[in-house]
């Protein structure tokens, strides 16, 4: 990520060419395979169910807005979108906050047991969250947290922390010592240094871990399925799944609901794609 700033602009060496027709042909084919099903779902939402049954691979004729209108006027769609947003934002904020604090200590303090603590966190990468889901449910039930936002947020934060710390630590460690000394001379304690120097400098890494945590939370299914029995707390993935099994004959409605549910993640990713790839680049470099 930091390398992006150093690397000379691409135009300086080899200008972008139009590429060979073969390159374009292959790239188009790959792109088509990737998004054809998605386009099908979005376009299918503009058809009627009888149209879809009569000709499953056809285009809308005529285009109908009714399916999307029906979904958008459902109050539970909006409730689910709100629940998803609250849980995803809560998870993201908590992961970034806790992750930065822990990674800061692991990167900038020298103390006995530091590497042991780091290894302790990285072990979490080997713990599949799926395997822990049953005992997790039982524990949340005993803590009376079932059917609350916390039941989803807290475990998601816990399972996102290892990767967050692994990505953030090299970033925070790379900030030059001189800056820390300068801050000390200016009378800032280490916490002041964290707040005023480190956080602004490591914003790209923070955005990367934030985006990863947000998308994972927005898409999560298994944990909410188990711990959010109350329909008022359902998130969008649960809503989509319930809608599709409840109205199996309303294919057009399912397509419209699915399209609307995936839209936020798609938009979010489109804006953040550079960040994610850049962040992974930094991590792969490790």
């Amino acid at each position: 990520m930091t390398a992006d700033a150093v690397r000379p602009p691409p135009t300086s060496r080899r200008p972008f060419s139009w590429g060979s027709p073969l390159t374009y042909g292959l790239a188009l084919a790959v792109a088509a395979v990737s998004i054809a099903p998605v386009v099908y779902v979005i376009v299918g939402g503009f058809r009627t169910t009888p149209q879809i049954i009569a000709d499953p691979a056809g285009l809308p004729d005529p285009w109908v807005w009714d399916n999307y209108a029906r979904v958008l006027t459902r109050s539970d769609f909006w409730q689910q979108a709100l629940n998803s947003a609250v849980i995803a934002l809560g998870t993201t904020l908590a992961v970034v906050l806790l992750g930065v604090c822990a990674a800061f200590v692991l990167a900038r303090y020298s103390f006995r047991g530091r590497e042991a603590l780091y290894t302790f966190f990285t072990l979490g990468l080997l713990f599949p969250s799926g395997a822990a889901i049953l005992p997790l449910y039982l524990m949340l039930r005993d803590l009376n947290l079932i059917n609350s936002y916390y039941a989803v947020i807290l475990p998601q934060v816990a399972f996102s922390l290892p990767l967050t710390i692994v990505i953030l630590r090299p970033f925070l460690a790379a900030v030059p010592r001189e800056l820390e000394d300068a801050a000390a001379i200016d009378g800032a304690g280490r916490l002041g240094f964290l707040w005023r120097v480190m956080l602004p400098l490591s914003r790209p890494a923070l955005v990367t871990v934030g985006v990863l945590a947000f998308v994972a939370s927005w898409n999560a299914f298994l944990l909410p399925l188990l711990v959010l029995g109350d329909a008022d707390l359902h998130t969008l993935p649960l809503g989509v799944q319930n809608f599709s099994s409840q109205y199996t004959s309303d294919t057009a409605g399912i397509l419209a609901f699915t399209s609307l549910a995936m839209l936020p993640a798609l938009l979010f990713f489109t804006f953040a794609e550079k960040q994610i790839v850049g962040g992974l680049q930094g991590a792969v470099k490790g």
Binding site: R14, F16, S17, A27, S34, V38, M262, A265
Partner: peptide
Amino acid sequence: RFRGRTVFRLLVFVPYVLAEVTVGI
């Protein structure tokens, strides 16, 4: 390097960003 590469990259990543549930349905 070819013109429009960024757009193709974005399109190829789309399935990965979709929720598993969405993909399943």
